[in-house]
Nucleic acid binder design. Structure first.
Length: 643
DNA sequence: CGGCAATACG
DNA sequence: CGTA
DNA sequence: GCCG
């Protein structure tokens, strides 16, 4: 009605929850009252928006490139410090629309100031509660459990029911860094130590003559990592670790080709049996050229040795640290990590508090068990999980056989998850094996062993038809995926149920009288159900490592023009399945028409040959048949550690 | 300078 | 398309 | 980033 009551600084209207025309209306209405509304957030002091809380306001400003901290958390802001104010949209409704004369200060929900500049403000502000440690060095399990316990109870309370839990509290461990250093352009690489170009020819030859002889695969420049031995403990582990970090960086920025390139180089160096002492050895390796050579030179000639300019840039970057944090959420990949960052989120708390409803169901589970899923699983626990699943499977399908694949099969002491194959030696059990999936999952859920099902992949041919039977149309080459379930596993709490005892050590969840929380960690478990025909191909496909698998498929494509997958082998030209031959005395991995020729197995007499860890030896036989078909020399899984 | 493993679900 |  |  009248002129403005006070002069206000420049105003910016936050776009939060407004569409373009709504926001434009607000802007013009405010301007009609002779306030100054700017279109660049940098020029504004007051921000008006549909914002509920101060934390959200902070995020909204960060999204606009204004990296402030809450002024109320700062002891004594220096005089003359610029304070950005965020006001509720209600101010607009009252003062602008209704014309009520009200003080904008009554509508401020957030005061933001720019944090003091510091040369170290790139580092994570890791001010979490200090660890309480016993005098003796903790075991791995203790460390993992202790790491977990600090954050767990709080998150758990926040998300007690995973499926539609309302988040409410903060996550302690993963407070993000306080300072934003998102690079708007890629880092400039610091000057590399220049290579000596003045080496005389004689000098180069003298050095070369003292080097160990090159392996045949190097001399022949054999590029496929599936054709050579790659042990778990390579002599150049330190340089490889640096390359792994660069590759992770490429993963995080979705540079898939860069990932492929570094993977090739890593696999090559990992297979090289000598400590690399001369740059000529790098150039000799397939998949390694100028770039890798330059990195190696810098790595070995830096002071102290082992430093890399690119890595130091990456490691001090809040941006990459944050992407890595988000990328480690099961169910989130590089794209989601980048998306979370762009929206202003910097730690798991931000996601829980401001983005929970937007997360997929499996991402919510991934956040809920973030710490436990980072923890590695010792071999003996892998075996006990295998045994439990196998025992239940045999209740439903006598004679079922299992194999642990993944890193475990490659010999790793600690596994990220458990990958388990279940099949049956008798070829005629093909459908029984695939149809085992749902009943087994139901049984394990009932027993409380499976706590969450993340995803189930069932072959389409088992979609029930009204007439009853399965095998709809594509039965002749039924070549869908291998049925599998990805789930969360927890060993039951086996402690005695003594009551009112002093043993209730961890009463962190007070109020839950009587209910003691199961202290066993949640584990990621994948169970696959290959039909007997696909036992060999699935075993090979799931034994890895990743680069070994990629090279195997490329090798088969280039050498045979075949397509290899966990379901088997097809000819690319004809599209027909390439059958796995039947060896004498063996009985699975047959072709379609041979199903009736399977050797009978007495399910009650289990005298089949087994390995030390209890696994059926027949698995290896199936895999050897597959390698033979592909004209590939079979290698121990422990020699497939291509990284 | 094009190509880089292959498959299925949400 | 993104993720495994 | 390396290969054909």
């Amino acid at each position: 009605m009248m002129s403005k009551p006070t002069n206000l600084p420049n105003i910016y209207v936050l776009p939060t929850r407004l569409n373009d025309s709504q926001r434009a209306d607000i802007v013009s209405n405010i301007r009609s009252k002779h306030y100054t509304v700017v279109e660049s957030p940098k020029d504004a002091i007051i921000f008006i928006g549909d914002v509920l809380g101060s934390k959200r306001a902070l995020l909204e400003l960060r999204f606009l490139g204004l990296n402030t901290t809450d002024a109320t958390t700062i002891k004594a802001p220096a005089k003359g410090t610029k304070i950005l104010k965020v006001a509720k949209l209600e101010w607009y409704a009252k003062v602008i629309v209704e014309g009520i004369d009200a003080d904008i200060d009554d509508y401020i929900i957030y005061n933001g100031i720019y944090p003091a500049k510091s040369p170290f403000n790139n580092q994570p502000s890791n001010t979490v509660t200090p660890k309480k440690r016993s005098a003796s060095p903790p075991t791995l399990a203790e460390k993992q459990a202790e790491e977990r316990s600090r954050s767990e109870s709080i998150l758990r309370r926040a998300m007690a029911a995973t499926h539609q839990a309302a988040p409410g509290t903060r996550h302690l461990r993963h407070k993000g860094p306080s300072q934003d250093s998102h690079p708007s352009q890629p880092f400039k690489r610091p000057k590399l130590i220049s290579q000596q170009s003045t080496d005389s020819q004689e000098e180069a030859e003298r050095v070369a003559s003292n080097l160990p002889p090159l392996p045949q695969w190097v001399i022949k420049k054999q590029k496929f990592s599936c054709t050579r031995s790659t042990p778990a403990d390579p002599p150049n582990q330190d340089f490889l670790d640096a390359l792994f970090k660069i590759r992770l960086n490429r993963i995080l920025i979705s540079d898939e080709i860069g990932v492929r390139a570094y993977s090739t180089s890593i696999a090559s160096i990992a297979a090289f049996p000598h400590k690399i002492t001369h740059i000529s050895q790098i150039h000799a390796l397939p998949g390694c050229e100028g770039k890798i050579a330059a990195l190696w030179y810098e790595f070995t000639h830096s002071e102290p040795p082992g430093r890399l300019g690119v890595l130091e840039e990456i490691e001090k970057s809040v941006y990459y640290k944050t992407l890595e944090l988000f990328y480690n959420i099961w169910g989130a990949g590089a794209h989601s990590a980048q998306s979370f960052y762009k929206q202003g989120f910097r730690d798991l708390d931000d996601l829980v508090e401001h983005h929970w409803k937007k997360l997929t169901r499996v991402q919510q589970i991934g956040v809920k068990f973030y710490d436990e899923f980072q923890d590695k699983i010792p071999r003996d626990e892998v075996i006990s999980i295998r045994d439990a699943i196998q025992n239940h499977a045999r209740q439903l399908l006598p004679g079922a056989e299992t194999a642990v694949v993944g890193g475990f099969r490659r010999g790793k002491e600690l596994s990220a998850d458990v990958d388990l194959l279940i099949t049956h030696p008798r070829v005629s059990k093909s459908r029984d094996v695939e149809e085992l999936l749902v009943p087994l999952v139901n049984l394990l859920e009932k027993e409380g062993l499976i706590t969450h099902v993340l995803t189930i992949h069932q072959p389409s041919r088992f979609v029930a038809t009204t007439s009853g039977d399965v095998w709809p149309k594509r039965s002749h080459h039924n070549f869908d995926g291998i049925p599998k379930v990805l789930c969360v596993w927890q060993q039951p709490d086996l402690r005695e149920d003594e009551e009112g005892d002093s043993q209730m050590e961890s009463l962190d969840e007070k109020g839950l009288a009587g209910k003691r929380k199961n202290p066993n960690p949640h584990r990621r478990v994948d169970i696959l159900f290959p039909p007997p025909r696909c036992a060999g191909s699935t075993l090979t496909s799931w034994s890895g490592a990743t680069t070994f698998e990629r090279d195997l498929r490329k090798y088969v494509k280039e050498g045979k023009y075949w397509k290899f997958s966990s379901e088997g082998v097809t000819d690319r030209a004809s599209g027909l399945r390439v059958p796995v031959g039947k060896e004498k005395g063996e009985f699975i991995g047959l072709t379609e028409g041979d199903e009736n020729n399977g050797v009978e197995v007495d399910d009650n007499v289990d005298n089949r040959a087994r390995r030390e860890d209890g696994e059926w030896i027949g698995w290896d036989v199936e895999e050897k048949k597959m390698f033979k078909l592909l004209e590939l020399e079979w290698r121990e899984p422990t020699e497939r550690c291509t990284g």
